[in-house]
């Protein structure tokens, strides 16, 4: 009887139990060839674990632990208080923002909104930008009629399942925005925008994007969609 490697591996990795495991163990004991194939999986698992655990590079320095404790202590302890991006009340929240960050404005669910409602809905995008968000694959860029360039960074779905895109716009002189917009019934709705000053390479330093990271963490964003998965959402 042919026993495929997937079953041997599953047994070695503890993914199989009960009668099935017992039967397979018995077959392995009785068949040297099977035993040899099984041994590949048990031996590699043992060696990998031992080698990684013995790696001196994996030690956590006291300094790293201290930094994390310090960071945790600086954050409000209560769960209700650790979601600044969803709280409607204050206009600004001191998210840990790097010095290089010029300006951060979040626009999701009233977040960071000025108490006075603006005259036009600031979460609506221009038709040209909406069209690009609906068609450009991630990694591509295009010119907008107002002279800016838009490049789409990634696609993901938010906690509610809406299709969202992170994109950057850059105007003359390198000034621009990193933004997130999600598709809703009426087109695209801006959820997050942050002004950036791009470097020569066209990218803001990663350290300036902590507010965006916090936004992702707070809104339950999915992992970036693969190019293939993204296609299902594009027009």
């Amino acid at each position: 009887m042919d026993i495929d490697d997937d079953r041997l591996m599953a047994l070695a990795d503890g993914e199989m139990d009960g009668d099935e495991a017992a039967r397979l163990h018995a077959q392995i004991t009785a068949d040297p060839d099977l035993a040899r194939r099984y041994a590949l999986f048990t031996q590699t698992a043992d060696l990998v674990k031992e080698a990684v655990l013995a790696d001196p590079e994996t030690a956590v320095s006291p300094d790293l632990e201290a930094r994390i404790r310090q960071m945790a202590a600086a954050m409000p302890p209560e769960a209700e208080n650790v979601v600044p991006l969803r709280r409607p009340a204050p206009r600004w929240q001191p998210v840990a923002v790097a010095a290089s960050l010029a300006l951060a404005v979040g626009l999701s669910a009233g977040l960071f909104l000025a108490p006075r409602a603006p005259e036009t809905d600031p979460t609506r995008l221009s038709a040209a930008l909406e069209e690009q968000l609906g068609t450009l694959p991630s990694g591509a860029d295009a010119a907008l009629p107002d002279g800016r360039r838009v490049s789409v960074i990634a696609s993901f779905t938010d906690g509610a399942g809406a299709f969202c895109r992170e994109y950057e716009t850059v105007a003359e002189g390198g000034f621009g925005h990193v933004a997130v917009a999600c598709r809703d019934g009426a087109g695209w709705s801006l959820r997050f925008a942050m002004a950036t000053r791009s470097g020569d390479d066209g990218y803001a330093p990663a350290s300036s994007l902590e507010a965006l990271d916090a936004f992702y963490a707070a809104t339950g964003a999915s992992q970036p969609l693969s190019a293939e998965a993204e296609l299902d959402y594009l027009e």
Partner: peptide, 12 residues
Amino acid sequence: VQITAERAIRAR
């Protein structure tokens, strides 16, 4: 590791 700890605490 530090980014992970920070995001985790923020999104606890």
